[in-house]
Computed example of a mutant assay.
Amino acid sequence: MKKLLNVLYVTNPDYYLRKEGRNIVISLENQRIARYPIHILKQIICFNYMGVSPDLMKMCMEENVAISFFTPYGKYCGRVLGASYGNIYTRKKQYQLADSQESLDFVKNIIYAKAYNSRKILIRGKLDHKETVDLNRLEEAIQTIKEFMLEIPKQTDKDSIRGIEGIIAREYFSVLDELIVKQRQDFYFIQRSKRPPKDCFNALLSFLYALLTNSIAQALEGVGIDSYAGFFHTDRPGRVSMALDLIEEMRAYIVDKFCLSMVNLNRINRSHFEIKENQACLINDKGRNLLLQYWNEREHEEIYHPFIEEKISLGLLPHVQAQLLNAYLRGDIESYPPFIWEG
């Protein structure tokens, strides 16, 4: 189990990071802005253009502190990691399963969990906002998702499950707009748009999906699993397919629920976004700083994990799931247990 320490977010695009003794120093035009001891950090996430010194990269690799790079608008660029502590037999098993039908049960489990958690978001939204939402529309989507969930265990190949997953996702996103009950003029959801996001709510989803994917990839690499070799998502150069597999079970509970809260509690507003020439809607500097503040606070919230039967910090969830996947690959448990939201 990894202890949940701090994540350092570098949000000013002009900041530069360098090493000073066993400390991380942030500077602007050669003037020191802040200094942090390396031992208090678990990860550094940079949204800057100026970069990081080679000496600091080396120290972070030695201390197993990952450095992840994003553009100022949240597009993932890459990361620097230290040595992987997995063994070759675990990775051989992973690659063997990735190229075979043996991983079908894993795929069924994560997509069932995705559907379950997505449906739970709709159920909770219906109960919390029953005076303002279209109850019939929500109930119809909830029932449709349940019907397709029951079909998942019957499938005999991954392509069939991909088809069902697509239907469930479309049904879920078709009514997600009902759960946005405040700031309706500025925040609405017609359909999922990714590259680029076309509205404020999609911008929130894309930004935070990228952050969560990065956290999952780091957690996988930390236990020795190849984050690029997935069982459900197909392989592509530069695509962290296994991280994308695991995010399926977490995205509704961790990201979608958080975004709805940010909007419905008026914690973020239209002034935190900007529209580019290509009509992309992106989070600006002020909005990103605010969002990361609340995101970091939420990572320290305690949740109950039904499989390990313990309370953990939400920020530890990717690490717990990575460890459970590692246990499955080693043969210590019979199947991979995805995260199911029981709240």
Rank of each mutant, 00 (worst) to 15 (best):
F258S: 04
D245R: 06
L260G: 02
K276Q: 08
N296H: 14
I268R: 07
I308Y: 10
C281E: 10
E299Q: 15
E297K: 15
H300W: 12
L260A: 01
F307P: 11
L291D: 04
L291T: 02
M250L: 15
M250S: 05
E309T: 07
N284P: 08
N284F: 13
I254K: 01
F258N: 03
S271Q: 14
I308G: 11
R298S: 09
K286G: 12
V255W: 05
D245E: 05
E248K: 04
M262Y: 05
N269K: 13
K276A: 13
K257H: 08
K311I: 00
I275H: 11
G315V: 03
I308A: 09
N289Y: 12
N289S: 15
N264W: 02
I283N: 03
I268W: 10
H300S: 10
E249L: 05
E299S: 13
H305L: 07
I254D: 06
E301S: 14
Y304C: 07
Q279K: 11
L317Y: 06
F273A: 11
I312Q: 04
E299M: 15
C281H: 05
L260F: 03
E297V: 02
D245I: 07
Q279I: 00
E309Y: 08
N269F: 10
H300Y: 14
R267C: 05
E277N: 13
N278F: 08
D256P: 01
M242D: 00
L282M: 10
N266L: 12
L282K: 02
L316P: 00
N264R: 02
S261W: 08
D256G: 06
A252G: 04
I303Q: 09
N289G: 12
K257P: 00
S271R: 13
I312Y: 07
S241K: 01
E310Q: 15
S261R: 15
M250K: 04
G287Q: 04
W295R: 03
N278V: 03
N289E: 15
L246T: 01
E274R: 11
I268P: 10
S313D: 01
V263I: 08
E301D: 14
C281D: 05
Y253A: 09
Y304V: 05
E309N: 15
D285V: 02
R270S: 14
I308H: 12
L316Y: 03
I247Y: 07
K286A: 14
R251D: 07
I254P: 00
R251L: 10
E249P: 01
P318T: 00
C281P: 00
M250Q: 14
E309L: 08
K276I: 01
E274N: 00
I283H: 03
E248R: 05
